[in-house]
Design a binder for these strands. Structure first.
Lengths: 176, 176
DNA sequence: TAGAGCATGTAATAAGTTACATGATTAC
DNA sequence: GTAATCATGTAACTTATTACATGCTCTA
């Protein structure tokens, strides 16, 4: 059901085609929040349109269909956003790997932690660049804090935290 | 496929019954790393046993079946752990809500951010208590850093980061 | 004019959820 | 003895993945 609202949320931010939405999922959305491929996205868009929560805003070249959210769609999104469920439900393969390290022999854990720390460093560098670019654009154009900027900041802080956690875990491992 | 390795990882840490594993998922594992209910766990355990990656270690009261990982199971787990895929795949409904805030009218965003900050504060308090208890037990018993301690530390840092991010987002929202 | 990438879809299979079902043991 | 919770399962349905399929348009 979440995919429905992920799509609704992206379309509430701005109208887009299935193809453009797929790209959003490949980049920030699928990386931190909700993963989805085009084979699920297209059918779900059709269902959303059938339910009147989105509508075709424009039909462009190469069969491109740009959708926009409707008023009922906005209402449904708002309802979902403002009533979070009690139970948190997460599926994150990376974090799963972190958690299962207790099960590995210590040398493997150490190797894995070091790889994670290095990987995080790469992500952090990349995100810092992204943010610098976004802030430049924003200084000219912007009022409202854009979707990508929120995501990038979240990503940066998340990777910093993960790296620090890995450093902590490594230190605890070494001290035993 | 990840559930398979989640189970293998937990059983590599220590033998357990399907019921006990289900509880692990309800608590730390499902909260941060990988969600799963008993209706998926039991069939997957049977499949793992059929594949020889785990074995029945003990049959106890009320039909309880305690499983233990086998050597092939350990090898399969290690292989999976040490070769993370390039693409990160995440499904986290909470984070999705954070991301979609750009799509809400500013007053709603503000309300939601404040609710998130409060919620994080609650989680942080709870996790601090958990960690204090774990560290007490560990001081007596312990050498290797236990599974739950890793998870609790990760959880604590994650919630602190999320709270700080929400505070940052709120400040940016107010300044416009 | 050829190749890259835009753009959307379907079908078969796998994974996950919800609802239903049953029985054993423990603590009160 | 009875309520809670331990303990495992199945069936119907929904959601997601993988593999396959097709055609358009822009750029070099």
């Amino acid at each position: 059901m979440s995919l429905r609202y992920a799509l609704l949320g992206l379309l509430a931010y701005e109208p887009a085609s299935g193809y453009a939405l797929t790209k959003s999922f490949e980049h920030h959305v699928g990386r931190y929040a909700w993963q989805a491929g085009h084979t699920r996205i297209y059918p779900e868009l059709n269902k959303l349109a059938a339910d009147g929560l989105i509508e075709v805003a424009e039909e462009g070249a190469r069969g491109r269909i740009t959708y926009a959210i409707t008023e009922p769609g906005r209402a449904a999104l708002r309802e979902w956003m403002m009533t979070p469920p009690a139970a948190r439900k997460v599926r994150d393969e990376d974090v799963l790997r972190l958690f299962l390290m207790s099960a590995l022999p210590p040398e493997d854990s150490r190797r894995l932690l070091k790889a994670i720390i290095e990987d995080c460093a790469g992500e952090i560098d990349e995100l810092r660049d992204t943010i610098a670019m976004l802030d430049e654009d924003c200084a000219e154009a912007g009022e409202r804090l854009p979707f990508g900027r929120l995501a990038a900041e979240y990503g940066l802080r998340t990777y910093e935290t993960r790296r620090d956690w890995a450093l902590w875990a490594l230190a605890r491992l070494e001290s035993h």
